[in-house]
Measured scan of single mutants.
Amino acid sequence: MMITLRKLPLAVAVAAGVMSAQAMAVDFHGYARSGIGWTGSGGEQQCFQTTGAQSKYRLGNECETYAELKLGQEVWKEGDKSFYFDTNVAYSVAQQNDWEATDPAFREANVQGKNLIEWLPGSTIWAGKRFYQRHDVHMIDFYYWDISGPGAGLENIDVGFGKLSLAATRSSEAGGSSSFASNNIYDYTNETANDVFDVRLAQMEINPGGTLELGVDYGRANLRDNYRLVDGASKDGWLFTAEHTQSVLKGFNKFVVQYATDSMTSQGKGLSQGSGVAFDNEKFAYNINNNGHMLRILDHGAISMGDNWDMMYVGMYQDINWDNDNGTKWWTVGIRPMYKWTPIMSTVMEIGYDNVESQRTGDKNNQYKITLAQQWQAGDSIWSRPAIRVFATYAKWDEKWGYDYTGNADNNANFGKAVPADFNGGSFGRGDSDEWTFGAQMEIWW
């Protein structure tokens, strides 16, 4: 008995050590931004985005507190085989008060198993909700290839000249389909599951310092038995992507060409959309029709120009041509140079221009935006974070068209359509004006 009692403290210590080691193995990653800002004409900070554009130049032009908190852990490992559990909870508030209630979004919860298939060394099996191989332009917060959501897949299969990845994910639309009631009355209240099937071939070395990635995505509306879509709904579509990445000037340049059809055009990033119906009456549900095509040509990157200068840049042309004439032509160009006074202090400027032409009206909206920021960051790279910055932003815009969301679809035949700025004596778009804002912001990723 005495021997047992003497061994007990040692056993407890060993158990505590094991539990401590396991606790220390938890990975904590994430992203956050928050700050305070004012508008020159009075009131809180207002942000500037061109009507019809899918993004905006973000430096000194973000008006919310946003965070993603990721917890993950390698829960099992034997040799080169392992299982990893990953989670991500995100939230966004308007940064107007101390207490701002919000419903967090559970954006990731997945398990990734590496090297589980003997004859596919280096590959990963995964299932669950996941940010899946996302491609974006940081300076405009624009995701041009992103099929994230609940799904499953097999990735990084070594095929000799590259890595092959296969995945299936889902994005549902509210009110996407109906069941038959009586007297030809349909009640569009059932969600429609939109499935996306993704095939990618990446890391193909085609020139010194250059790699090529090719991808095909097929999206479709997956209806339940005895349900139907509204007439004209976009049932399926394709997205084709080619991306060349070149190492240059201690950074990279990415050149991207994408072509999409029908349900893959509205978001243009790989998620299927077009079966959703915002109104019970299918007579007024025309606005979900996105049959047509999209072409996107994009070049972006980040480079170092000597010891003291870094720069991000982007140039993009996007043409969404829809059968219902509600598409757009959008082109944007911008730069973000950074001058480093010390390894932790810099001055950053961002200059961006957007131009969006309405397919329906032929009119154009444009905006110039310039931001000057003094910044303190954890390192001497344009990617170094955390960063604390004080900024001043000036924007000038001239908008000739907007979307008509007055009333509702039952009493407005133009609901959701592009109209000229002065349509029917109204005021659509943001008109011709300018404004400036100033404030302070922190940004961090880890």
Rank of each mutant, 00 (worst) to 15 (best):
T241I: 01
G209D: 04
E64G: 14
V419G: 15
H300P: 05
A260V: 00
I335F: 04
D380Y: 14
V26F: 07
G270V: 03
D380A: 04
N190I: 00
T437S: 14
G407A: 15
M312V: 03
R130S: 09
V257F: 05
A174V: 09
T437P: 13
G237D: 00
F85I: 02
K283E: 14
D404Y: 02
D98Y: 07
F428L: 07
Q133K: 06
D217Y: 10
F28I: 04
S346I: 02
A23G: 05
L249P: 05
N88D: 02
M349I: 08
Q73H: 09
L120R: 13
F438C: 15
Q374E: 07
Y339H: 02
I297N: 00
N412D: 02
L116M: 14
Q133R: 10
D434Y: 13
S123Y: 11
V216I: 03
A278V: 02
N222H: 06
R58C: 03
G334V: 07
Q49K: 12
Q367R: 14
D198E: 09
A242S: 09
T169I: 06
G352C: 08
P420L: 14
A181G: 14
D307V: 07
K364R: 07
R296S: 05
A167E: 13
F252L: 03
G17V: 05
G268A: 06
E213G: 01
I320S: 12
D325Y: 08
L229M: 03
G425C: 13
D136N: 10
Q22L: 03
A21V: 05
E435G: 12
A105S: 11
V111G: 14
K364M: 03
G37D: 01
R6H: 03
A16V: 07
Q374K: 15
A302S: 11
N110T: 13
N253I: 03
D86Y: 11
V333F: 05
T102S: 12
S358T: 03
E44V: 04
T39R: 10
R134S: 14
F240I: 07
K269I: 04
V277I: 02
V137D: 08
C47G: 11
L295V: 01
A11T: 01
H293R: 02
G72C: 08
Q54K: 13
N414I: 14
G416S: 09
G301C: 06
S165Y: 13
T361A: 11
L201V: 13
N194D: 10
Q54H: 14
G431C: 12
D307E: 11
D86A: 12
T361P: 12
D323G: 08
N190Y: 02
T169P: 10
I382T: 06
M338L: 07
T406S: 12
R220S: 07
A53D: 09
G237C: 11
G232C: 09
E213A: 10
M316R: 03
A302E: 11
V314E: 07
G60S: 03
Y405C: 05
N324T: 09
H300L: 14
P104L: 10
N366S: 02
N281D: 06
I303N: 00
G215V: 10
D398H: 10
A174T: 12
A181D: 11
Q267L: 05
R58S: 09
P121S: 05
C63W: 15
S346N: 03
A409V: 03
